[in-house]
Design a protein around this nucleic acid. Structure first.
Lengths: 252, 252
DNA sequence: TCTTGACCTTGACGTTGCGGTAACCCTTAT
DNA sequence: ATAAGGGTTACCGCAACGTCAAGGTCAAGA
């Protein structure tokens, strides 16, 4: 017993156009009857189910095309890799729901939403990015408390402060680029780099000390994640080492 | 002070191409400098933040276009409607994750050592600690299944999620300390405590409900083991009762 | 037999939210 | 004066289909 396009479309919850498209790109080839109509065998039904299954996991059609030809172990690996992605998406949705609830409450005459809260979801994203990059290492070297306090501080920044912090970092990058090329540690640009970096730190550090600053400089030089961050953002290969050298030079 | 395309793009985490596109379709018009360059005012920055915010909630750009011209009440209605959609998506993702886990378990027969397994011992430790503290009592009141499902979920957390969960709990402790001293249930700190505790729960609960949350609040107040845990970690004697009061106040 | 209406076919163009590239302009530093 | 690093418009391309247009096929009723 075979299915027509419409029948299979109904069964699988897709449009007939979709089935014709899948046939066209060779993802789900159909056999043809004497009149040229498409006919789908039970095997095709199974294949379509698999396709829809993979599709739910955010694979593209070309990826699915590949997956369906590959071995079972390769398929397993791909699925496992997708798991983390799914979990991230769910956590993000959870955060969004919380934010949305607060937004709605505020709009319904509830407690007024501060600028900080309005930006919370975006900053949460930023924050976890930061944590992914630096969190583990910093925790190891400076202890849990410092990092938590720093995140706390970060989350408490007002929207204006947050933008000011971003602007400061931008200035830092610009000046750092100059120093990275000139390599002149006594230039005005180098002094600016030190001042800006210190200023940037003080947005989130409440107890600045030159020792901690120098400690951070070591991290910038020695840890690939820190180094990559600065090299990427500044756009030169020796940005991190230059920044570290500047800090070592001025922080006393 | 105005931003150039690149500057605003960096700030907002979008590409400059995106900004030019938004200008082109009139979603985020830019002013022009004497040289024809785009210049973005602070008002444009705010508008872009709003755009990104709505975008997170899966509105199309044309819908956002409309929303930005409409009244605040219309915007509220749209957001409220979107809430149900968001929750559906999250539930769907949860189901997908469970399915995927079962799929992977079925495919995985051998003693291959994954990163998850590397963390498994540590998490197993934590898990038994939790079980020693809370397990018996929770089992009595909520039944074996709930507890097992929760432990299952906990063991499935990725390393990154595990650290995020720890960070959330730390934030919770900090805020809770404030509330425990002020005893102001309507303060921002109290609201934060509720949100954080809910967020913390959702790392391991896949079906959050306010009733279950209130039930847990009772446990915190009435069971010495729960109470001691929070009082110890926060460092004040009335932490657990305060937390319970906050939850009772907000979970409806 | 003829017609009607439901189904099927192959094009071909439209959509969303940008990415990428080309070709050219502006400013600054060397 | 020339190179670099920004900016500009303009156009082509992508996935995964939706949506016509123009027509072939088939069973049923007048």
């Amino acid at each position: 017993m075979t299915y027509s396009v419409q029948e299979l479309a109904q069964l699988a919850g897709v449009s007939s156009r979709t089935l014709r498209y899948y046939d066209q790109i060779g993802l789900l080839p159909a056999e043809r009857g004497h009149n040229g109509y498409r006919e789908y065998s039970p095997a095709a039904v199974d294949r379509l189910q698999l396709i829809r299954y993979f599709q739910e996991f955010d694979f593209s059609l070309t990826q699915i095309q590949d997956l369906l030809t590959q071995s079972s172990t390769a398929q397993t690996a791909a699925l496992a890799q997708q798991r983390a992605h799914l979990q991230e998406r769910r956590d993000h949705l959870t955060a969004l729901l919380n934010t949305l609830d607060r937004t709605l409450a505020a709009r319904n005459g509830g407690p007024h939403m501060t600028d900080t809260e309005k930006f919370a979801a975006f900053k949460q994203q930023q924050l976890t990015d930061n944590d992914r990059q630096f969190g583990t290492e910093a925790r190891h070297r400076y202890g849990q408390e410092t990092v938590d306090a720093s995140q706390q501080q970060f989350a408490n920044l007002s929207a204006a402060d947050y933008q000011a912090m971003q602007a400061t970092e931008q200035d830092l990058f610009t000046q750092l680029k100059t120093v990275a090329t000139t390599q002149d540690l006594t230039s005005k640009a180098a002094q600016a780099v030190y001042a800006l970096h210190r200023q940037w730190l003080c947005f989130t550090w409440n107890n600045y000390s030159t020792e901690a600053h120098r400690g951070l400089a070591q991290l910038y030089r020695d840890d690939a994640r820190f180094a990559n961050y600065y090299n990427d953002r500044v756009g030169v290969a020796n940005a991190a080492t230059t920044l570290a050298a500047v800090i070592q030079h001025y922080a006393h």
